[in-house]
C-alpha cells in the first residue's frame, strides 16, 4: 500500500474507478438536494431552531465529505471491491419485486409458493419433490403457523375465487 502510494503520481487520477466516481457524485447530489430542501423547510423560526436546521447540517456534511473523498481518490485511488454476481442480484431483486407486487393480489400463500418454487426448482435445481415440500411448508405452512401461532396475519388473495379456496 505505502510503496504504491509513493509510486503513483498525479496522472493516476484516471485510475479512479467509475463506480467510485458515481458513488461520490450520488452522495454529493443527495447532499445538495437535502441542502435545498431544508432551506425550504425553515432553518430558524421565532421559537428557535426550525425543522430544516438538522437536515441542513447533514446535507452540508454529506457534500463536504463527498468533496474530501474525491480529493482522497485523486491522490490515491482506492482499490475497488470485487464485482458482484450480477445474475444473483438481478434474480433475487426482480423476484422479490414481483413477489411484493403480487402479494396483495394473489395472497401470501400462492405468491410465496411461486417465489420459492422459482428459487428452489429453477435457480437452485433442487428435485421436484424437495422443492414442492419446501415451498409448501414456506408458503401454506408459514401462513398458518404465523396466523395461529403468533397471531400475525399474512395477506389473503384479493380475488374472490382464490379467496374461496383458502388462499
Amino acid at each position: 500500500m505505502t510503496t504504491e502510494s509513493l509510486i503513483t503520481k498525479p496522472e493516476s487520477a484516471i485510475r479512479v474507478a467509475p463506480s467510485v466516481l458515481v458513488g461520490i457524485g450520488a452522495f454529493a447530489a443527495v447532499g445538495v438536494y437535502v441542502l435545498v430542501g431544508s432551506v425550504e423547510l425553515n432553518l430558524w423560526t421565532s421559537l428557535g431552531p426550525g425543522p430544516g436546521l438538522f437536515p441542513f447540517a447533514m446535507g452540508a456534511v454529506l457534500v463536504a465529505m463527498a468533496v474530501l473523498w474525491l480529493v482522497q481518490e485523486l491522490r490515491r485511488p482506492s482499490e475497488t471491491a470485487e464485482g458482484v454476481d450480477r445474475g444473483l442480484v438481478v434474480a433475487v431483486v426482480l423476484s422479490l419485486t414481483i413477489l411484493a407486487a403480487l402479494m396483495d393480489l394473489l395472497g401470501f400463500q400462492l405468491s410465496m409458493f411461486l417465489f420459492l418454487m422459482y428459487h428452489l426448482r429453477l435457480r437452485g435445481r433442487r428435485s421436484w419433490v424437495s422443492s414442492l415440500i419446501t415451498a409448501l411448508a414456506g408458503s401454506v405452512g408459514a401462513f398458518y403457523a404465523f396466523n395461529y401461532g403468533l397471531n400475525v396475519t399474512l395477506p389473503v388473495s384479493a380475488f374472490p375465487l382464490l379467496n374461496m379456496i383458502g388462499l
Binding site: 422479490l96 413477489l99 402479494m103 417465489f115 428452489l120 433442487r126 419446501t134 414456506g138 399474512l154 395477506p155
Partner: peptide
C-alpha cells in the same frame, strides 16, 4: 444453500411485511 437462501428471503419478506402489515415496507 440452495434451500437456505430462499428460506432466509422468506423470513425477510415476512419480517418486513409484518411491521405495518403493508407491502410498501417490502419494497
Amino acid at each position: 444453500s440452495t434451500i437456505l437462501t430462499p428460506l432466509i428471503l422468506l423470513f425477510m419478506v415476512i419480517g418486513a411485511y409484518t411491521i405495518n402489515f403493508s407491502v410498501f415496507d417490502v419494497f
